[in-house]
């Protein structure tokens, strides 16, 4: 369990994040993810695991595969899914949504840590001082993106660091270098000539769960409402059907809900 690196001795902030002055900070690291270019190959997930030695069963970044659309009643009555006398056919599309810690500008995880073990560095990174962590799990509860987890080996909270050990040496994060479609772009928002600056200037971008007021610093291009709906809690939760394997008609939303297996030890894929 090694302490987090801070090669340039940047100040740490624990409390009120307006203390982070973007003018005086040497960098403001952000990530832009262009969803039009993500092909769902999961190589970023593999690269992250390899670079950061992330244990089996937990993930610092993961690519969520989201099915968008509806199951519609088949007028002929021979759709693949039959519920209550009707049959349904899928009218759905699949999207990939790469996710990681959003390195929020107002991170609730940092605010709630009882021992100041996690902090925001002046250049925008939200990091953890592992030897200090008491493992209470409050930061994990407070993160709206489920970006934090308990590292099963070192038994502390853990999360994406934007590959701090690489960017302090002038390298890109592992997930960015391995992205085959160049969907992940990393850079310095303080630098007007950076690629992220250009992307943010040219495209309309969206953040995940911006209603939470966390000010996320991972920006998505082409993140539409259907995706957000399916990839946040702001939708219906799956009706509990332990031991059954039947598709259900949800009276609340008028949708057919497919049985999906739940549980398991944090298998993100």
């Amino acid at each position: 369990m090694s302490e987090i690196e801070n090669a340039h001795d940047l100040p740490y902030v624990h409390n009120t994040f307006s203390q982070v002055d973007p003018e005086r900070s040497p960098h403001h690291w952000v990530m832009v993810i262009d969803l039009r270019k993500c092909i769902g190959c999961q190589s970023c997930v593999v690269a992250c695991k390899s670079e950061n030695n992330v244990p089996v069963g937990v993930y610092r970044t993961w690519v969520q595969v989201v099915e968008v659309g509806q199951w519609e009643v088949d007028p002929n009555g021979d759709g693949p899914v039959a519920v209550e006398g009707k049959t349904y056919v899928p009218s759905v599309k699949r999207f990939s949504l790469p996710r990681l810690c959003n390195h929020c500008d107002d991170p609730p995880c940092v605010e709630v840590c009882p021992v100041e073990a996690t902090f925001k560095r002046q250049d925008g990174l939200v990091l953890i001082d592992y030897p200090t962590c008491i493992g209470c799990g409050y930061c994990i509860q407070a993160c709206p993106y489920d970006a934090r987890f308990f590292n099963p080996i070192q038994q502390t909270a853990d999360k994406c660091t934007f590959c701090v050990q690489r960017i302090d040496r002038g390298l890109l994060p592992a997930c960015v270098t391995s992205c085959v479609g160049r969907a992940r772009v990393f850079g310095d928002l303080n630098d007007p000539d950076s690629e992220v600056g250009a992307l943010l200037a040219h495209y309309s971008t969206q953040g995940l769960d911006i209603a939470a007021g966390t000010n996320p610093q991972v920006f998505y291009i082409n993140l539409d409402g259907d995706l957000v709906d399916a990839a946040t809690a702001y939708n219906t939760v799956y009706p509990y059907a332990a031991g059954t394997n039947t598709n259900q008609y949800d009276e609340l939303t008028g949708r057919v809900l497919l049985e999906t297996p739940t549980g398991g030890e944090g298998g993100r894929a």
Binding site: D226, A230, G264
Partner: peptide, 16 residues
Amino acid sequence: MGGSLTHSGLENAYWG
């Protein structure tokens, strides 16, 4: 709107 996730087991309840 939305849809059903094709996989799960993404999250854990850490407080028991």
